[in-house]
């Protein structure tokens, strides 16, 4: 049973990993994040239905089968969440990574802060995020103004989590130690 759950969760993640590259290579706009999660839902559903069928065929009862599928789903979702936060999200939208890339690209000569800010600044950052939210449907552009009509969006989840971390840890981060 243990190996079934592990194989189910890691297998689901590996299939997703391969498929999300194929799918996201076709996406040209900034809606990669919703597509990422839609791909995961599709792969996870298919993989866990398959896991349930295999588990039943091996003579396991309904309750153990449901347990295996639920546990495997939980683990594969956590695995995908870790990948999303630790690699995908960082590569897709991290300002720190972009800065690092700009400095490495400058080579041995390096780059001054002023030059860096002409290539990459708050206006570019805001424009990119507005374009991303419009593409994902989280906000709408109506002429010159932006509005939001969705009562809830996926992007609020990490914001709420981070808010929770601020509350739990208090003023103990780098800002208060510099």
């Amino acid at each position: 049973m243990d190996i079934f759950i592990l194989a189910g969760s890691v297998g689901t993640f590996l299939i997703f990993l391969a498929l999300h590259v194929l799918v996201l290579r076709q996406i040209s706009d900034r809606s990669v994040i919703p597509v990422f999660w839609m791909t995961y839902v599709f792969v996870s559903m298919a993989a866990h239905v398959f896991l349930g069928i295999v588990s039943s065929m091996r003579g396991m009862g309904a309750v153990p089968t449901l347990g295996i599928v639920a546990a495997s789903f939980l683990l594969s979702t956590l695995l995908t969440g870790n990948y999303f936060m630790g690699i995908f999200g960082v590569m897709e939208s991290s300002i720190r990574m972009r800065v690092l890339g700009e400095v490495v690209r400058a080579g041995r000569a390096g780059v001054s802060r002023r030059t860096l800010l002409t290539h990459y600044n708050h206006m570019k950052i805001v424009d990119k995020r507005l374009a991303r939210f419009v593409a994902s449907g989280d906000i709408e552009r109506m002429g010159e103004v932006y509005v939001s009509r969705k009562p809830f969006t996926f992007f609020l989840v990490p914001a709420l989590m981070l808010h929770f971390f601020w509350w739990v840890y208090g003023r103990t981060n780098i800002v208060y130690s510099k």
């Binding site: 939210f133 103004v145 992007f155 780098i174």
Partner: peptide
């Protein structure tokens, strides 16, 4: 590292103060 996300800030601004211009 105080990675206050500009994405979240943009989203909150539009949700709380929208309609809002660039």
């Amino acid at each position: 590292f105080d990675a206050r996300s500009p994405s979240m800030k943009v989203l909150f601004l539009v949700r709380r103060h929208g309609p809002i211009t660039r």
